[in-house]
Design a protein around this nucleic acid. Structure first.
Length: 116
DNA sequence: CACCTGACAGAAG
DNA sequence: TCTTCTGCCAGGT
């Protein structure tokens, strides 16, 4: 059993469409909730492309209104490295999302229930 | 054009 | 729970 799906490179316009869907999905995460990269990808119709979500978020301009800080990895931790790592933790705590001493967020409690 | 590098995830050990 | 490994694939070197 191998490749059920075809791997085709996306055109510029298709990529822009994917970007829009991803950002729209992230934008729909309610305050005080979090979602994983994989979940965002699935919700955006891009199952299996979690890394693309990270790539798109990484390119967001600093003044963006998109709640990028509500996206974390499947382990319940913050994936961003560098200064924005602290910025993400700050923003989450500001929304009452607790992060334990080991840097983990309780997904069972804060995970965005993607009612589907 | 070959090879490497990720804001990732799931399975296996 | 942590580590290792395999998919995934756009961009950078």
């Amino acid at each position: 059993v191998k490749r059920p799906t075809r791997a085709r490179s996306a055109s510029i316009s298709e990529r822009e469409a994917m970007r829009q869907r991803i950002l729209a999905t992230v934008d729909s995460i309610p305050r005080g909730n979090v979602a994983t990269y994989g979940e965002i990808a699935r919700e955006a119709g891009l199952s299996g492309r979690a890394r693309l979500v990270g790539r798109i978020l990484r390119e967001l301009p600093s003044g963006s209104k998109i709640p990028w800080h509500r996206v974390i990895n499947a382990a319940g931790r913050i994936s961003v490295r560098g200064t924005s790592e602290h910025e993400q933790a700050r923003r989450l705590r500001r929304e009452r999302v607790t992060i334990d001493a080991r840097g983990r967020i309780d997904l069972a409690r804060h995970r965005w229930a993607t009612a589907r």
